[in-house]
Each structure stands twice: as structure tokens, then as C-alpha cells.
């Protein structure tokens, strides 16, 4: 229940009372037990929590890969709860960019083809200009020189940059990163975090799931979860002053 006065246009994500229950045999597992969360445009949030805390489930629901059992999820002011699987696919395509821990690049396609992939399924203007858009986005993440390389010819950091370019190419409302540095060494992790910071400066909304504290502290806001509930929601470092002005929960 955010008390913070926000204009409706400014809210990208609004979860209210979101619960997710899995049925395993006769047993029900309550992965999320009523989550309320509001994210504004250009926020940079890290979601943290031990395994089993429900952060992956939350991530899946935010990414429209999964539906909540109860509650509502509004993305860009639109309720996604009742969408068909094709409708969800369209939302994922147009409004969400995924970055995964294991990059998930298609091995047989070169960098530019991998980046083009969301546009292939998009149609419309993005589809028409897919080559130019892919090239432009790859240049933005600093891989302008390696467009024709296949994933096996790229380093881990470069692979993740290709994956980030793929996530951004269709200009999504949110960038969803699931342990984006989990497979990278410290130096490369910092490079990726620097890229995230740059994207944040340019106005991109970023949600990042991580269990590493120092990675999480690159974000401006940290949401902590435990047992399917949000237990803490705070601003980080230099943003703390604002936190006193804007109570998070």
C-alpha cells in the first residue's frame, strides 16, 4: 500500500494481492501469498531473497511467463490477468525484455540474428526495421564490432551484452534480469552493472533478481522477500534520503 502520490501514467507495474499457488499432487504450495508492489517508470529495482522465498515466481509473473492464481497485475496500466497465452506472448514481445543467467543465446545464430529474434515475432514497424534496430542496439551495448560473431566466438560478458541487446531491441517497458551476473566473473559483472547503470540513466526501467548483496546495491531500490511475501522495500545508498520522504511500504 504505497502512500506515495504518483500519477497513474508514471506507474509501470502495479501488483495488488498477487498470490500464486502450485498444486503438487494433493498438496498446495503457496509460492506467493499476496504481494503488493508498485514500480514507477525509470526505477532500478533489485529483488532479493533466499531460495524458496518466491522471488523466481514473482519474476515469472512480472515477465508474463506465468499467471497469478489471485490478485491483479497491471503492466502499463493494462490488466494482464485475463490474457490468453498468445496475448501474453504479445506482451512479452512488446513490453518485456528478458536477461537470463545463462544468456540463452541461440548457438546457430550470430549476434545480430540473436538480437533480431524478438522483432521477427513482432510485426509492424519494429519488424520492418529489424536489421537497423538490431545493429543500433548492439552498438549501444558496446558490441558494434562483433555483430557477425556466433555465441561460441564470444566471451561470457559479450554474450550477456548480446542478450541485453536482444532484451532491449523492441524497446520494452521493463528490463527483467534474472541473476544477470550469475555466470560471470567479478570484473565482467561490474562491466554489466555499469551498462545497467547507463541504461538506467537513459530512462530504462530495470528489475533485477539477484542473491548477491553487492550486485543488488547497484540498484536504487531493493525489495526483499521471504516465504512468499515482501519483507522489506528500501532505497539504497545515496537514495536513502529520498526514502525518508517516500515510505516504501
Amino acid at each position: 500500500m504505497s502512500m506515495m502520490p504518483t500519477s497513474r501514467d508514471d506507474v509501470v507495474i502495479r501488483l495488488s494481492g498477487v498470490a500464486r499457488t502450485y498444486k503438487v499432487g494433493v498438496e498446495s504450495i503457496h509460492a506467493l501469498k499476496g504481494v503488493d508492489l508498485e514500480l514507477r517508470r525509470n526505477e532500478y529495482v533489485a529483488i532479493m531473497g533466499p531460495s524458496g522465498s518466491g522471488k523466481s515466481t514473482l519474476m515469472n509473473i512480472l515477465g508474463c511467463l506465468d499467471r497469478c492464481t489471485s490478485g491483479t497485475y497491471e503492466l502499463d496500466g493494462r490488466d494482464t490477468t485475463r490474457l490468453s497465452s498468445a496475448g501474453l506472448a504479445r506482451v512479452r514481445n512488446a513490453q518485456i525484455g528478458f536477461v537470463f543467467q545463462a544468456f540463452e543465446l541461440l548457438p546457430r545464430l550470430n549476434a545480430i540474428k540473436n538480437v533480431e529474434l524478438p522483432l521477427i515475432y513482432a510485426g509492424g514497424e519494429g519488424w520492418l526495421n529489424r536489421k537497423a534496430r538490431a545493429r543500433e542496439t548492439l552498438t549501444k551495448v558496446g558490441l558494434g564490432e562483433r555483430m557477425k560473431h556466433r555465441p561460441n566466438q564470444l566471451s561470457g560478458g559479450e554474450k550477456q551484452r548480446v542478450a541485453i541487446a536482444r532484451a532491449l531491441v523492441n524497446r520494452p517497458s521493463i528490463l527483467l534480469a534474472d541473476e544477470p551476473t550469475g555466470n560471470l566473473d567479478t570484473r565482467t559483472s561490474l562491466d554489466i552493472m555499469a551498462l545497467f547503470e547507463q541504461l538506467h540513466q537513459e530512462g530504462q526501467t530495470i528489475i533485477m533478481v539477484t542473491h548477491e548483496d553487492d550486485i543488488a546495491h547497484h540498484a536504487k531500490r531493493i525489495v526483499r522477500m521471504r516465504d512468499g511475501r515482501i519483507v522489506a522495500d528500501e532505497l539504497t545508498g545515496s537514495n536513502r534520503q529520498i526514502a525518508t520522504v517516500a515510505p516504501a511500504t
Binding site: 515477465g63 497465452s85 504479445r90 540463452e104
Partner: peptide
């Protein structure tokens, strides 16, 4: 995994 990725980036069934 490829199918999963394609679906994640918006491939419809």
C-alpha cells in the same frame, strides 16, 4: 531451451 527462449521473447504458440 530454445523453445523456451523463443516463447520468452514473444513467439506465440
Amino acid at each position: 531451451r530454445e523453445i523456451g527462449l523463443r516463447k520468452a521473447v514473444g513467439a506465440r504458440p
